[in-house]
């Protein structure tokens, strides 16, 4: 295990050190918003103590990154594989366009989480947000799963405006008693079925273990599932010149 005391080290220096490090386990202490940590990495596990900067774990391809603190914007942007665990909240655009791997956020996520997430064969990305997600959650969702638990929302919809706009694949599970009031026409909502609950249960297994939550208590509450109305929503829009 290699420990780096980050302090105010410039991001490029820090990331060069991480790339050059031959150890497969790194602990970064006193991180102060340095950007691009773990960008495109596939062979190291990183623990970040402090606040990770923008685009942490962009194109991540198989590591586990654990943040003991909050993360800033664009966490796991275009992530391909691996796992990001945030013991806190994260900023905007988490998991933008991610295709594989998992992002677990203990508290809340900012705007635009999971936009254009997509799935392909064994690559089935997953984002779980403990409390609440901001507006535009899962816009253009093309595949994968987003779960928002609303832990402190007391049954209110745990998302902001425009949830799932342009959605054409994947699903969004919301643990709440009332639906968002402005769901767009591309989204169909229903109560989670038994099959859905089994899937949620499987996904929550490690999330609850990591963040020390009572899975059964969570599963006892009501979940909605949002799905696309059609996988080809744009089909009828055109006429040829």
């Amino acid at each position: 295990m290699t420990t780096i005391d980050v302090g105010l080290k410039p991001f490029d220096e820090l990331n060069r050190e991480i790339r050059a490090c031959t150890d497969d386990t790194l602990v970064l202490n006193d991180v102060n918003g340095q950007r691009y940590i773990g960008c495109a990495l596939s062979n190291k596990n990183i623990t970040i103590n402090g606040t990770s900067g923008n685009a942490m774990g962009a194109y991540l391809d198989g590591c586990t990154i654990t943040v003991n603190g909050n993360a800033q914007d664009a966490t796991g942007d275009t992530m391909n594989d691996g796992m990001i665990i945030i013991h806190g909240s994260c900023g905007d655009a988490a998991g933008y366009s991610m295709r594989g791997g998992k992002i677990f956020i203990r508290d809340s996520a900012g705007y635009r989480s999971g936009i254009h997430m997509k799935a392909y064969e064994e690559k089935q990305p997953l984002i779980i947000i403990g409390d609440r997600a901001g507006s535009f959650l899962g816009e253009y969702l093309a595949g994968g799963t987003i779960i928002v638990l609303g832990l402190h929302q007391e049954g209110k919809a745990p998302v902001g405006y425009f949830c799932g706009t342009g959605m054409h694949g994947g699903k969004i599970y919301l643990r709440c008693d009332t639906l968002p009031s402005d769901l767009p026409q591309q989204v169909s909502s229903s109560d989670a079925t038994q099959e859905d609950m089994q899937e949620i249960s499987a996904h929550l297994e490690s999330y609850c273990a990591i963040f020390d939550l009572d899975k059964e208590a969570l599963l006892a509450s009501h979940f909605y599932v949002l799905r696309p109305n059609s996988s080809t929503p744009y089909k009828m829009l055109y006429t040829n010149v």
Partner: peptide, 20 residues
């Protein structure tokens, strides 16, 4: 589908802006 890494016969949509 294999090259784009998306399912067969589903629309491939590139949003107008990059949302990041």
């Amino acid at each position: 589908s294999k090259t784009r890494m998306i399912p067969e016969h589903a629309d491939a949509i590139s949003p107008a802006p990059h949302h990041d």
